[in-house]
């Protein structure tokens, strides 16, 4: 009996100290209407090279291994997006685009500007593809998003996973948060109930992830439509690219995928 009493006293003595240990706080951002998001785009050059070689008949794998030694595994670029509740502008950050010292590697249209206007349901995009500059104007792309129950935390936001396929061939995974009211995303991805903070395209070895979301009031100059380039709509862009790149043969489709996003 007395030993029992001792145990009880001991337990009671420990309890208050345990009480003091606090649990970590889990901050949830409130609903956001405007701000600035920094995206990091990563291209796996080594994998891309493998794909390219495969497309070429797989003959030059020894050469590919040699080339890989000379370039870093990833090409990393920084983009930023300004948004309010009616529009958004996605563009490369100052000095955001890195260089790849290799032909054929990288992304043909690597510095897109995308302006989304949600009141009109249209977008304007400036694309520099090789020597040409296009100004694409079209209605917002109608993606068929498949919603899943998976979640991932990106830049402090809980993002739900959604999936779709673009151009009948490229599987796209998007992570979006409904804590941001603007239904936008990197490049011209949109159409989910909130902001897309992550995009993964395994077939293109390409990922986009937000690294920072700032509460920032964009001025009138921050969200303006691009104006440079030859005006075309999406369809016209595709047929134009197809006809002007016929000689690319096996690579054509892959290059098109990069160009069309």
């Amino acid at each position: 009996m007395s030993s029992l009493r001792h145990i009880l006293i001991l337990l009671l003595a420990i309890a208050p100290q345990l009480l003091l240990a606090q649990k970590e706080k889990n901050e949830i951002p409130p609903v956001t209407f405007k701000g600035k998001i920094t995206f990091e785009r990563k291209l796996n050059l080594h994998k891309q090279m493998d794909e390219m070689m495969k497309g070429n008949g797989g003959a030059n794998s020894a050469m590919a291994d040699q080339l890989k030694k000379n370039i870093s595994k990833y090409k990393t670029d920084i983009f930023e997006m300004y948004f309010n509740d009616t529009k958004s502008l996605y563009k490369p950050a100052p000095d955001g685009i890195s260089e790849v010292k290799m032909m054929m590697a990288g992304i043909p249209s690597e510095k897109n500007l995308v302006y989304n206007d949600f009141t009109q349901g249209v977008y304007t995009s400036e694309k520099s593809i090789f020597e040409k500059t296009y100004l694409i104007q079209d209605s917002l792309k109608p993606f068929q998003w498949k919603i899943t129950e998976e979640f991932r935390k990106i830049a402090g936001f809980n993002c739900r996973r959604a999936e779709t396929v673009i151009m009948d061939s490229v599987y796209v995974v998007a992570f979006y948060t409904d804590a941001i009211m603007t239904n936008s995303g990197p490049e011209n991805f949109s159409g989910l109930p909130g902001m897309i903070l992550g995009i993964v395209m395994p077939r293109l070895n390409l990922t986009y992830f937000a690294t920072k979301v700032e509460n920032y009031l964009p001025g009138e100059k921050d969200i303006v439509s691009p104006t440079k380039g030859v005006k075309k709509d999406q369809k016209e862009l595709e047929s134009d690219l197809r006809s002007s790149m016929k000689q690319w043969g096996a690579f054509l489709e892959r290059i098109l995928w990069y160009c069309m996003i």
Partner: peptide
Amino acid sequence: VFASVSAIRKSDSILVRHTR
């Protein structure tokens, strides 16, 4: 206020319509 409301097609989980 501002809750996201989505209608998802049951057969294939495709997002059909959404609003706040």
